[in-house]
Each structure stands twice: as structure tokens, then as C-alpha cells.
């Protein structure tokens, strides 16, 4: 039987909206939670490459943050690489790479290499091992030429690749990617696809959960596709099996929703 990298049973996540002035003046301090993940059951086998799709506000980023241990579930059971992220946050984070593609998540006045050196040390690497790993990733992601420039001067695509390099520094067993190919030109996109599919998922048996809106890349890359909508898992299967659901989710006349 294949070992599970992720197991979730009845997983729920609520967000508390900020207090409004009106509520404070009326003395109503109880906030009504907004449900971002609703009763999610999920098992992801180790070494698989799974795409996570759904419209904005479907709960994709919330799910990735729960798996990265950045958020705690409101209810349900969650095990990541056999551990509970709430009880063993350090052990989970040692084996999970969460690719935060928000461009501001770097120290912009430091160079790309200095950023990787800093985050690599926080991830538990140091000395020549860390520096060699950084050099390899910079080379692999075609950032070696700009590595000593301030991140401030990087394009969106460069920051995306730097974010991917950061998430791979400590050789994670579970990689969580959030829109990682956004802003990349077709050649770099295909390079990132090859890295994730061939090197990480196939050769190194890294489990990859990839949130994306790009239907073509999901079709080309993934073993399995999860479709989410309004915090629920609405389809799970191969791309062909899930495609009709995706078509309806991304229909132009469908009303949108953002849980936050």
C-alpha cells in the first residue's frame, strides 16, 4: 500500500473577520466566522503530483497554508507526512516546502542570494552545504546572473523563480506550490514544469500539490486533479474526469465569491 503524504478527515477552517466600528459601538464583539474549508476529506499518496484548481476564493491557498502549518484547522483531523502540524509544527515544516509567491515575501533591499542564504539558514542549512545548494538552485532556475542584485530590481517572473528556489532549499518531501508559473514566459514555464515533474516528482519522489488556474499546464503535468469550490472538494480524479466540473466552475457567467 502507498504511504500517504497528506490525510485530512472532516477538515474545516473558519476565518474571523475584523471587528467593524459599528459592531464595536453597539457592543457586539462576537464575530461571525467565515468558512473557508468545509468538511474536506482528502488523501494524497506520497510521490504524486496533484493539481489543485478552483475559482478565486475556493479555499486553495487556505488548504496549502493548513498543510504548511501556518494555519490551524477549526475542526477535523489533518496529518502531513504522518504528523499532526498542530502538535509537531517544527517536524512538519522541516519536510514541507511552501512556495509563497507573494513578491513582497522577500527582503527587497537584499540580493537574491542573500535572501536564499537567510531563509536557507532558517530552514536548517548552513556553511558550504547551504551555499552549494543555493548555487545549484540559482543555476537551475536561471537566476545565477542576477543573484547578487537587490530583489527590488527583479521582475515578477524572477521573484516567482526565487520563491520556488526558496521552497526547495531544504529538499522538502512535500512541496506546496501556489500559482508558481504565473508571470513566467513559455520557455521558463516549461523549464519549471520539467523541474517539478521530472526531477522532483518522478526522480526524487517528492509529493507536489500545485494550485493553479492554468488549465493547459494542469492537463499536461498532473497525475490527479482536485477541484475546489466554496471551500469544498467538488471533484477528484484525472484531468479528463474532472474537466466537466472545471468547465462549469470557470464559466464566464458564474457568480464569484471571496471568503475573506
Amino acid at each position: 500500500m502507498t504511504e500517504a503524504a497528506v490525510e485530512a478527515r472532516g477538515l474545516c477552517k473558519d476565518y474571523l473577520p475584523p471587528l467593524t466600528w459599528g459592531a464595536m459601538i453597539r457592543g457586539r464583539f462576537r464575530r461571525t466566522p467565515v468558512r473557508a474549508i468545509e468538511d474536506l476529506d482528502l488523501t494524497i499518496a506520497a510521490g504524486s503530483l496533484v493539481a489543485l484548481m478552483g475559482p478565486n476564493g475556493a479555499g486553495k491557498t487556505t488548504l496549502l497554508k493548513l498543510l504548511a502549518g501556518l494555519l490551524l484547522p477549526t475542526a477535523g483531523v489533518l496529518r502531513v507526512l504522518g504528523r499532526d502540524p498542530e502538535r509537531s509544527p517544527r517536524e512538519v515544516r522541516q519536510q514541507v516546502g511552501y512556495c509563497i509567491t507573494e513578491g513582497r515575501s522577500f527582503f527587497l533591499r537584499l540580493s537574491g542570494r542573500e535572501n536564499l542564504r537567510f531563509f536557507g539558514t532558517l530552514a536548517g542549512l548552513h556553511g558550504p552545504v547551504r551555499d552549494r545548494r543555493i548555487a545549484d538552485l540559482l543555476e537551475e532556475l536561471e537566476l545565477a546572473d542576477v543573484a547578487d542584485r537587490q530583489v527590488l530590481s527583479y521582475s515578477d517572473g524572477m521573484r516567482q523563480r526565487l520563491a520556488l528556489a526558496r521552497s526547495l532549499l531544504h529538499r522538502p518531501r512535500l512541496l506546496l506550490l501556489d500559482e508558481v508559473s504565473r508571470g513566467l514566459d513559455p520557455r521558463l514555464r516549461s523549464r519549471v514544469h520539467r523541474l517539478v515533474r521530472e526531477d522532483l516528482a518522478r526522480s526524487q519522489r517528492v509529493t507536489v500539490l500545485w494550485a493553479s488556474h492554468q488549465v493547459e499546464e494542469v492537463e499536461a503535468l498532473s497525475d490527479r486533479v482536485l477541484a475546489m469550490d466554496r471551500g469544498r472538494l467538488v471533484a477528484d480524479g484525472t484531468f479528463r474526469e474532472v474537466q466537466p466540473v472545471l468547465d462549469s466552475l470557470f464559466r464566464e457567467d458564474r457568480p464569484g465569491r471571496d471568503p475573506r
Binding site: A68, L70, R90, E102, S105, F106, F119, L122, A123
Partner: peptide
């Protein structure tokens, strides 16, 4: 404000 807090908290450093 800089947006680096989550990136640091995502590492194994407490």
C-alpha cells in the same frame, strides 16, 4: 508590513 513574516514562520525556526 514587508510581507516577510509568513515566509519566516513557514520555516522550522520557532
Amino acid at each position: 508590513l514587508m510581507g516577510t513574516l509568513e515566509a519566516m514562520l513557514a520555516t522550522p525556526t520557532s
